[in-house]
């Protein structure tokens, strides 16, 4: 008896589904080399002018740089808060555990547009109370992104914690360690990989965040997704194709690299 395998029909249909998933990513590649200033497929001659735009244009630079900074800060804060929360829950195991976890998961469960309205409200209020961190500012974007990505970081850290042996916490505690000593010397070093994963996840989500960002920024804090959005809204700017290809190539490299690493290690 062999193992259970899909038949030819299933494989054919799955191939079609796979093509469907890859199609839009493949389509932007030729488009990014178009010589035209508007969205038109290249006819014969190819051009790098849109890549040059990304490379030279100060607006694109500013947006990329802003997104990098927001991503670094927001993911660091989110990872910190998520780690503190998950560790605390892991230690205390409070009776209200399910309720508390449900609460911090809200921004992930609530429809993004509702979160956007909520954060729009908050940022408008901050704009009056503390304009430096309110609507359309760097810190405003950071705070909003932390809200949006922190549930994902919590999930990753909790999964990491669930993998480690509770008895090492008990051992540390029984030997007289304070909660801070046990955390810093025993628990955190053992979930290092989970912390990195949570941070990377948070960074990627912040880097791509658009729904909320649209509501809480206007002309000052233009993140990269917001600039792409602007390039898509009115007359579609083929520079978006160039930046998309760059992002797709990076993603593809990372994903393929991971698969390759995993498959060769086996």
């Amino acid at each position: 008896m062999g193992t259970y395998r899909p038949g030819p029909v299933a494989i054919l249909l799955a191939v079609l589904a796979g093509l469907f998933l890859l199609a839009p990513m493949l389509a932007v590649i030729p488009m990014s080399f178009t010589p035209f200033r508007y969205l038109k497929m290249p006819e014969g001659e190819l051009s790098l002018r849109h890549y040059r735009t990304i490379w030279e244009n100060a607006d694109w630079h500013a947006s990329i740089w802003l997104s990098v900074r927001v991503g670094l800060v927001a993911s660091s804060i989110a990872t910190f808060l998520a780690t503190a929360f998950s560790l605390g829950m892991w230690y205390v195991q409070p009776r209200l555990k399910a309720l508390l976890i449900g609460f911090v998961m809200l921004p992930m469960i609530v429809p993004p547009v509702v979160s956007a309205v909520i954060l729009y409200f908050f940022m408008s209020w901050l704009a009056k109370a503390a304009p430096a961190i309110g609507y359309d500012t760097f810190w405003g974007v950071v705070i909003s992104h932390v809200v949006m990505v922190v549930p994902f970081a919590v999930v990753v850290v909790m999964v990491a914690l669930s993998q480690i042996d509770r008895r090492i916490e008990m051992a540390a505690r029984g030997m007289g360690a304070s909660i801070w000593q046990a955390s810093a010397w025993v628990i955190l070093p053992n979930i290092g990989f989970g912390l990195v994963a949570a941070w990377v996840m948070a960074f990627v989500l912040s880097w791509e965040e658009i729904a909320v960002t649209l509501f809480i920024t206007s002309i000052n804090a233009i993140t990269l997704p917001r600039r792409i959005w602007m390039g898509l809204r009115d007359n579609v700017d083929p520079a978006v194709a160039a930046i998309s290809v760059i992002l797709i190539v990076i993603t593809l490299a990372v994903v393929l690299g991971r698969i390759l690493w995993r498959e060769t290690r086996k």
Partner: peptide, 26 residues
């Protein structure tokens, strides 16, 4: 009180001497 757990519960990221030094360090 000292405790020896079933399965030992040694700290996997530490050397032998760091494990033994832990209660003194804290």
């Amino acid at each position: 009180y000292g405790m020896v757990f079933q399965g030992y519960a040694l700290f996997p990221h530490m050397s032998v001497e760091d494990n033994v030094a832990f209660p003194l360090r804290v």
